[in-house]
């Protein structure tokens, strides 16, 4: 299922913002390369706010202890468990839609 989080304009270029989707906290990033990525908003290391992290086109750095995560895969480059990845796309009218991947467990 896809859920709208509003207009692309509500996402500043290069930054992340947090949205609540079905009780999940999702950090959504709009990269300078024009992509939109969505990952779980809480750092698995110590609960840091991922959306507040510095990001580039590939990774985001958690602001608390500088753990690095890939935006596209959620994988950590600093030895932490991965972030969950959500599907994200922008419609022709500029609306950002998030989808949860098919849930693995019931």
């Amino acid at each position: 299922m896809e859920i709208s989080i509003g207009s692309l304009d509500s996402l500043p270029v290069g930054e992340g913002r947090t949205f609540a989707i079905d009780g999940d906290m999702v950090a959504v990033f709009r990269t300078r390369a024009g992509m939109v990525h969505a990952v779980s908003a809480v750092c698995p290391h110590a609960g840091g706010p991922i959306a507040d992290g510095l990001a580039d086109n590939e990774v985001v750095i958690c602001p608390l202890h500088q753990h690095v995560f890939e935006l596209a895969t959620g994988c950590s480059r600093s030895g932490q468990p991965p972030l969950r990845v959500y599907g994200a796309r922008v419609t022709d009218t500029g609306e950002v839609l998030l989808s949860t991947r098919v849930p693995v467990d019931a």
Partner: peptide, 17 residues
């Protein structure tokens, strides 16, 4: 200065830790 500059990033977490 930018949209949502002061938007909370983790409002669902029980605060403060």
């Amino acid at each position: 200065r930018s949209p949502g500059q002061f938007k909370p990033s983790l409002p669902l977490l029980p605060l403060p830790m």
